[in-house]
Amino acid sequence: MSSSASTNDVGAPRISRGRAAFIVVAGLTVAGALLGVLWAWLAPPVHGVVALTRSGDRVHAYLGGEADHFFTSAFMLVGLLVVLAVVAAVAVWQWSAHRGPVLAAALTAGCALATAAAAGVGAVLAHWRFGSLDIAGAPVTPEHRVYYVVEAASVFFGHSSLQIAGTLLFPAAMAAMVYALIAVSTVRDDLGGWPPQETWLPTPPLRADVAGPSGPERLSQ
């Protein structure tokens, strides 16, 4: 014998699953662009110097620990996007009618696009705010051999394709992991989504020590 789990009382969705996936992807992309604006405002600039050597060569160096700002700014962007990914995973799960692999894929793709949008918007605004470093155009002369410059912070930890891909995929992986952890903790096979499906649970076996007396014992009584 078996018994059914609690009834899934979720109502039919008003919009299709495909449209719901599009809304998730578009919303995350817009949120990523807004995070790019926030990052460009928070990211620290990198101060350096361009100097003219005695041999006439131009050299570029960073002041003190200013070079650490490249790592700090990239870590800041990834941190903002991971927070967005975790919040988005929990929020998308609350859309109970569309729970399932379609929205999980939309969440993952949306977080990847949000990272790309944040990096693009942030890099453009940071370079607009601080300008681009031009070592060849620095106004250094034999009379004024030192010129101080300010450089925009970096959105990636490096310029290699592997480092860029890792930055783009890390928030998406975090969102997928959070969504999966919530899904595996759900007792229903349909995840409480639409259409509802009955989940049948096996009846526990009858224990011998709680069984009633046998037939001959009853007759003897």
Rank of each mutant, 00 (worst) to 15 (best):
G48L: 01
V92A: 05
V155S: 12
A26V: 15
V37H: 04
T203R: 09
V155T: 14
C111K: 00
H159R: 14
L113I: 10
S73R: 00
S161R: 15
A88H: 02
Q163E: 15
A152T: 12
S214K: 13
A33L: 03
P205C: 06
V10E: 13
V82M: 09
I182P: 01
D134T: 11
T203L: 09
R14M: 12
L80Q: 06
G212Q: 13
P13I: 08
L206D: 12
D190V: 05
G36K: 02
D68A: 09
A61E: 14
E198R: 13
S55N: 13
T72K: 07
V155K: 00
F130Q: 08
L103N: 07
T115E: 07
A40V: 06
P195L: 05
G36R: 01
L107T: 05
M1G: 14
A119E: 05
L201W: 12
V37R: 09
E143M: 04
V37A: 10
M177E: 07
V155L: 08
E198C: 07
V92Y: 01
G137T: 03
E66I: 00
A91F: 10
V90R: 15
W194C: 04
A106F: 08
Q197G: 11
A21P: 03
H127C: 02
T186L: 11
H159F: 15
A43N: 06
M1Q: 12
L81Q: 08
V102K: 09
D209K: 00
A175M: 05
P44S: 13
V124R: 15
V83G: 06
V187C: 02
D189C: 10
A106Q: 09
Y148S: 11
G158Q: 05
A26F: 14
S161W: 15
S132C: 07
A20L: 10
A172K: 02
A165K: 02
H144M: 08
A74Y: 03
G110S: 08
G18R: 11
R145S: 06
V155E: 14
W128S: 14
L169C: 12
T199V: 12
L206A: 15
H127M: 09
L52G: 05
V78L: 10
L125C: 09
W41I: 14
A89Y: 02
V30L: 13
S96K: 15
A97Y: 07
G32C: 03
A175C: 05
S132I: 10
P44V: 07
G158Y: 06
W200D: 11
W93C: 04
L168V: 15
A208C: 05
A176D: 07
L181C: 10
C111P: 03
L80D: 00
L63N: 13
A138W: 00
A119R: 04
V92I: 09
W39H: 09
Y148T: 12
A67Y: 12
L181Y: 07
A183T: 09
G215C: 00
L38H: 10
A175T: 06
I164M: 12
S4K: 15
L34P: 07
I15P: 06
L42T: 11
A88W: 02
I23A: 13
G137C: 03
P171S: 04
V25D: 01
I182A: 08
A116H: 12
L125K: 05
A165Q: 02
G56M: 01
H47I: 05
T167E: 09
A74K: 00
G193Q: 01
V86C: 02
G215Y: 14
A21F: 01
V121A: 03
A175V: 06
V184E: 04
E217R: 11
G18H: 08
A138T: 00
